[in-house]
Design a protein around this nucleic acid. Structure first.
Lengths: 217, 217, 217, 217
DNA sequence: GATGAATGAGGATTCATTCAT
DNA sequence: CATGAATGAATCCTCATTCAT
């Protein structure tokens, strides 16, 4: 069972993560790999213990429950994904006179790098959010809110600069969400890609800007 | 373990489903609901049995294993999704002088209707394909192949008619895949929507054709 | 659970065996093969049904319980083994002037033939008598009694004729039992032989008569 | 399924048995009793657990599967029976001028003592070898080989000393195997004897040496 | 007589979790 | 901190048996 307040949970968990033993790191490392590959439900704590070279008891000494071990993996990632995300980029953006295309390219490149570096954790997070209704209901609203707040600002700026069509923010958000969730899930979850080529980024940037329909001449 | 040849599996499974008992139908019905909601791994056969008003043994009498029960649900759906998909639409398309926009609208409307009608099964299929590496490796190639073959034909036609930009088929396929997987997964899995408004369809059609970038005047 | 009175059981079972359907014969045939190979406990009635090309219900229609199916196989064999055994041989013996060696050879040849013809049933009987304490306690006394009664007569005759050493009957019975049970079990159960060569019979006859120790000269 | 190499299996199993918990010993003890009495197939792990005063999980923690529990009982016995068997006896024999009769008496006394001390394990081993074709095919060849190798040496020695008739080794081996398997199975399995009287040993020794036929004067 | 769908008690096995050391 | 033996509820699955057709 996940606690009501996800943020409280985060606080609790992160406090512990300060002084992580070697064994703790190994446990988390192995857990991520196994959860990513086989899913949380199909991974036994005994398996994690064995692969981590640790006694089963040790896992529970540190994380209390298996569910809490999962959260110790998911929460920091989720907490990091959005803040790190646009905040700094948006900063640069405000000053610069960069175009939406430039922003989009920088933004995608940045987030793709982040996910590539944390590929397995990303897989765990997405798989479990999708798989467990309970988790989904708890985490998804937080994610949506965090993303919306940031993206709306950006959209507004570029609308004013005339780089984005005059479509309701809401529609744009949905499209962007659709394309990005599709892009990340297709590549990192379904196709299990380890990295994304620059060409692929160019393709998606072009597509988001122009679509692939041919306007009648 | 899933057999190598998915089609053989289908054949076997469908043969049995000819003379389905009332209890069998109830089992499948309940299994779909529970698998869709909680995931295959988190659903006990005893729970299915209880909810279906059936003895647990009855499930195994008919489906042998829990895994096979899952396949009995997934396979017919997968087998149906693509053939039914474009084949008839493509038929109409050949004769008609419909534009790509019209095709896209008709196509999306049609597939959305199909998924809406089989919403829970769709959830089961996607969740399990994403969750179990094993299943993914077995089913995904089949799906990708089935989809590609059909879509490439369509893309070629509309390219010749001048309705689609002159971009490599491969790139278009990827974009289309990205958008559609994103659209279906966002709406039917993450947001758990039961239906899609016509407006939303219009939005996505417009977006696919034009993107939301503003070309500099 | 076996009934108290084995003979009653026999009576009941044999009555039914008069008008055996084709399906019944097939059931018995398959049951013998499977029980002989894998043991009663490791053979499912569903397996018997499938191999016999019969519905599972049919087995229970005819034999009521799985245990009773086993008895339907074992009892006639046991009932036949001893009477058929020596009775006729002893008959000839009384008149004839045959030696103990001749009798022994004829006797062994005759019983070996009987077992060879009913090899699988013999395996079922022995395996189950050995395996199930319950069955053993019920059947073994009957067998020992039936064997003793007949063999003692024979031993007496040949003792009078001076063909057998002057050893207590009881000791001779034990030795004979030991050798014969050892011979039958070794060959037909452990080594799974289908027939016994005449040479092997000669060997055992010679051994029973003379042992293989060399009397000091 | 038993591994191909029985000796590897032994090694693995014996390693674990070094530091046996009190509970583990109790489990083995109870398992032996129940397997001996009712057979492996007719004994539930839950029953073993209950009688051993242990949780059912504990059994599987230590032995993994029920089959492996069986092997943990059988293998050490089999591994011990033959080596311990003749090796030391043969040692004495080489130096001494003992007769075949003396050897036979010592040998039987020794082996009977061993089996008496491990009566229940012996019952388990024999019952399961006889009952399960699979186990039989795997273990029997090993046993036959181990026994033959040792006994042939002995037979050769006594033949040279003129204590054994000039019969082919092979025939003598078969006879000896027949008599001994018959003796052990009759007494310890069928008649469930706990010990063998000295008189009975004398009888069998005499019989093996001389048979009970009366040579014509 | 024969069927086969349905049963439900029981069986082997798994697994998160606890606790004494 | 760390261990690993022990737990027992829960899980998937088997199987002899019943019964309506």
């Amino acid at each position: 069972m996940v606690n009501n307040n996800l943020l409280d949970e985060m606080a609790k968990i992160l406090k512990k993560s300060n002084k992580q033993t070697v064994k703790q790191k190994k446990i988390i490392e192995v857990a991520i790999t196994l959860f990513a590959e086989k899913g949380y439900s199909n991974t036994a704590t005994s398996e994690i213990a064995k692969m981590a070279g640790v006694a089963e008891g040790t896992i529970f000494k540190h994380y209390g429950t298996k569910e809490n071990l999962l959260l110790s993996i998911m929460v920091p990632f989720i907490k990091d994904f959005f803040p790190t995300m646009a905040d700094e980029l948006i900063g640069e953006l405000m000053n610069d006179k960069c175009t939406f295309e430039e922003f989009l390219r920088a933004f995608l490149t940045n987030r793709i790098a982040f996910i590539s570096e944390n590929r397995e954790i990303f897989q765990v997070v997405i798989k479990e959010i999708i798989y467990k209704e309970e988790l989904k209901n708890e985490i998804l609203p937080y994610i949506l809110e965090a993303a919306s707040v940031r993206l709306v600002k950006v959209i507004e700026i570029f609308k004013q600069r005339g780089d984005i069509k005059d479509i309701p923010n809401d529609s744009i958000l949905k499209m962007l969400g659709t394309v990005m969730s599709g892009f990340f899930i297709s590549n990192f979850i379904l196709l299990n890609k380890k990295s994304i080529s620059e060409d692929a980024i160019e393709d998606i940037v072009f597509f988001i800007l122009n679509g692939f329909g041919q306007s009648p001449q």
